[in-house]
Nucleic acid binder design. Structure first.
Lengths: 208, 208
DNA sequence: CCCGAAACGGAATCGCGTGTCAGTTTCGGA
DNA sequence: TCCGAAACTGACACGCGATTCCGTTTCGGG
């Protein structure tokens, strides 16, 4: 049920392949030079195709950036939801391990290719209102995901009963966001950053 | 020593006044429609001046956005440094109070006028490389400020001795960033958000 | 009240990038 | 090998907006 009807055959597959290549090339260009600074011609040139061809695959410039973002959002949410259900854990220690695992996934995506956070956080919001709303939706989605983990923890009793779940979730996501942004300049600090984040959550910053 | 040489007189003052009005109008436009979507003509029209006049005050479109950002950065750093030196406190309780005070200042700036975070976080980074570097510099500056507070706390012994100061500072700033971004949609949640942030720092999220 | 300098305004210029389109090439099937 | 459909190409047609420039207006000093 994951893929739709068979894409007929050969030529059709070629088309889908080129379509994918265009999305990737556009991602490269947008991340490197920025959305407004790259022209359709740049994207086409990168693939060695005429820029008229581009319009056989995408309506217009605005159209493709949506697809690029789709792609990235898919990667990120995929990493977040895969094999890490909130109710897979039942103790604080397990929870901490799980959060480390999730942090690692995110780190892999954001840290290994800084173009991903650059596009999602630095380029996309400035494109237009619709896109910035989309990014805000993404934050909201992330907040509700995190909130689900917290809710689960409160119910099982390994997290504070009086947790302000929603706002705490946003604060935690903020820390993750901070990590992603840091990785724009110092991708190698990603791991330490992630550990510091977890220490704040579990140990706080105060001396005992 | 705060102001330079006297700006001669009357007419000169008028000029400075208009200059300021242009900066404000540009801020309005950029925050509302976005940098790329606003033309110089829009800024000029908002003030009822000819757009040619604009060029008597600023070199070009790129020039003015720098001044707008200067202005905002000044406001933010002003709020951060004013009357809140790191060494003004010496106990955890005082520190917590101070952080609440700082949070309140930031909340006033970000929460009361969402256009400020929208411009700084959503519009500016997408303008060009130079501007996004500038925003990253701002994050670095903020990180070093926060780090100074943490260092002071560690030295006086009211914060954990084994704190990873730099990364913890970035994580904390990330939470603040998250709050600022939330305030784009729900400015009224600002206070609760800020409180949740402090609870994470001081109490953690784990059940006792 | 008059004059020259400085400020203003907005029509005109110019460059750039999006999107179109008609001619050309490719390719699978017969 | 030949044919028609489908894909590709890039020169071209716009439209848009930044910047310029010069005729007009304002204003302070004499």
């Amino acid at each position: 049920m994951t893929s739709s009807a068979e894409p007929v055959s050969r030529a059709e597959r070629k088309k889908q392949e080129l379509r994918r290549e265009i999305i990737d090339a556009a991602f490269d260009c947008f991340a490197e030079r920025g959305y407004h600074a790259t022209g359709i011609a740049d994207v086409a040139a990168r693939l060695g195709i005429g820029h008229g061809t581009f319009y056989r695959y995408f309506q217009n410039k605005r159209d493709i950036v949506d697809h690029v973002v789709d792609d990235l959002v898919g990667r990120v949410t995929g990493a977040l939801t895969a094999e890490n259900a909130p109710d897979a854990v039942s103790t604080l220690a397990e929870y901490r391990e799980q959060s480390a695992r999730i942090g690692e996934s995110l780190g892999r995506i954001f840290g290994e290719d800084p173009r991903v956070p650059r596009l999602l956080l630095f380029e996309a919001p400035g494109i237009d209102r619709a896109m910035s709303e989309r990014i805000l939706d993404l934050f909201d989605l992330a907040a509700s995901l995190t909130a689900a983990y917290l809710t689960h923890g409160v119910e099982l009793g390994y997290l504070r009963a009086d947790l302000d779940i929603d706002n705490t979730a946003r604060a935690i996501n903020g820390m993750i966001l901070g990590t992603a942004i840091s990785s724009l300049r110092t991708p190698e600090a990603q791991v330490a950053q992630s550990e510091a984040l977890r220490r704040i959550m579990y140990d706080g910053i105060a001396a005992r």
